[in-house]
Design a protein around this nucleic acid. Sequence first.
DNA 1: TTTCGTATGTCAAGCGGTTGACATGTTAGT
DNA 2: ACTAACATGTCAACCGCTTGACATACGAAA
Lengths: 321, 321
Amino acid sequence: MKVKLEDVAKAAGVSPTTVSRVLNNRGYISELTKEKVENAIKELNYYPNDVARSLFKKRTNFIGLIVPTVSNPFFGELSLYIENICSSLGYKIILCNSSGQLEKEKAYATMLIRHQVDGIIVCSYNRGIDTYKYPKLPIVAIDHYLAPTIPVVGSDNYMGGKLAVQHLIDRGCRSIIHINGPLELETPAQYRRKAYEDLVDNPITYELQFDEEDIVLSIRKILTERPETDGIFASDDMMAAACLQVARELSIQVPEQLKVIGYDGTKTTRSLLPQLTTIKQPIEEIAKTSVKKLMDMIDNPECSGSYETVLPVQLLISETT
Amino acid sequence: MKVKLEDVAKAAGVSPTTVSRVLNNRGYISELTKEKVENAIKELNYYPNDVARSLFKKRTNFIGLIVPTVSNPFFGELSLYIENICSSLGYKIILCNSSGQLEKEKAYATMLIRHQVDGIIVCSYNRGIDTYKYPKLPIVAIDHYLAPTIPVVGSDNYMGGKLAVQHLIDRGCRSIIHINGPLELETPAQYRRKAYEDLVDNPITYELQFDEEDIVLSIRKILTERPETDGIFASDDMMAAACLQVARELSIQVPEQLKVIGYDGTKTTRSLLPQLTTIKQPIEEIAKTSVKKLMDMIDNPECSGSYETVLPVQLLISETT
DNA sequence: TTTCGTATGTCAAGCGGTTGACATGTTAGT
DNA sequence: ACTAACATGTCAACCGCTTGACATACGAAA
């Protein structure tokens, strides 16, 4: 049987209440008693049961984190920062990889509520999940509009798109295309596209819907069909990498014949593919801001605060443009 | 106030016991009652409190996952698979990024025990954390020897090292060095090094201890000091990428003058740096096996099963060798 | 008619810890 | 000697749900 508070009390020769007092630093405790209790805890190898504690306190110190997949460098990095910050604040992360699937995301949201999480950070695709309307559950969305009442933290996507496209134009590109994934529906990321469409005369946007192999396939098709293309603004670095790969296959010289710019600028990308010109998102800032916002909402259930936070992005020029 | 089981009972005009029966599919319930209860649940927007349930059941369905950092593609991918599999089995993941720091890892282990996790999967560096000796807590380690009793799942590191080094030799390298991080102490990954040292006449292993910039710095130093080097076996793809970067800086032609082989072969690396020759670890298999093993231990507290599982690796030849 | 399986209800204990109320005793300060 | 502050204890309620025990009905099969 597991050691419980009562056992500690017996071993220390004090009452359960006293042990609880020591554990929670409440009321009056003499140094002596405190030591006795602490010794008993060590000797019995006692760990307080946080499930019981949570039940009583109605506070679990759990935060749900829903991302499409942590294996993507952007979300991986974001998750790392979010987890680190939360951990330093005494919160724990329940990790959910939704794969961008509505059903999965719904199931995760339900699970999180049942587990009485204190709040949720969502950076996944799907709208209209009623679960998010659960009374006063603090939720922060990263780069996605979930509902009119849910605050959004993200980077300046319009500016990012503008920086990227303007850079391609400055480098002399005349036939620029834009490639993005299926992710960008109803998200602030649509502003990247908006910027592209605002800056370019005959904007052509490709929306690639499938998994990786399909993406390479699609890009090959695009580049073959539109050989005049001399600039690609990809909506993330993985897409940009796929473009570079296809360009190599087709013996298209980058950056001479074709310039490619990505988006995200994660550490991983910068390590593995430092040649890639890209727009760097302030991932750590996004993490900090979302956690801070969430904490505000948790501590202050009514105050809504600013609805949308937009953080600055940065153009990282390298060798693909 | 939150809706509770009792409220549902009232709304449905039945007893709490009956609601619980519907919720848990126990005992006799007529279709009619079931419907009444389910309707009440929907109308009241009721979510059962899993904290209370866990307390009673002494089962949380939580699995702790300790990794150095999910932002590393290898651990990110591993975490994704582990989470997906667990999720499909009704388990939730508590994510812990230890940064390889002993103190952090200890704190995480304690936290997980307090939260009554049903099991822990560890793929972090540190040995000798007493917490892992907590009575009969099911633990599986990935690629790390934590304690004599804790089962280890990993890939065939010796074979991986051998494949890598033999490949370099076959490609004509005569002066091969090995670079690894600080991670490889007391881990099966040391066998990669062992293989290297077994295959090469004058083995020279560099252990890089610091963060990324330092790594690039160190590699630059190494390549400058040992210009005769014509082959590098890096202990992971990130290191290999750093080598490639430095080679470019120093105008060393890869693969003509220098051949580089990495280790891990994650999807991310294969997307961002498809040119890299590397040893591919069976990440999904590692995830599956560890989860399965953990589940066995959870369901079957005594049975220990095989202590070490070794999964096959694969040489992916590309353009850097 | 008896008995069994079905369907529901009431009740109370329990999971492990927290907390407030209240009692009692010890010190120290005035 | 009297009052506070300090130190500890007992007791019971509570967090929300589960479960076993037990009671009560109803219809159907034996």
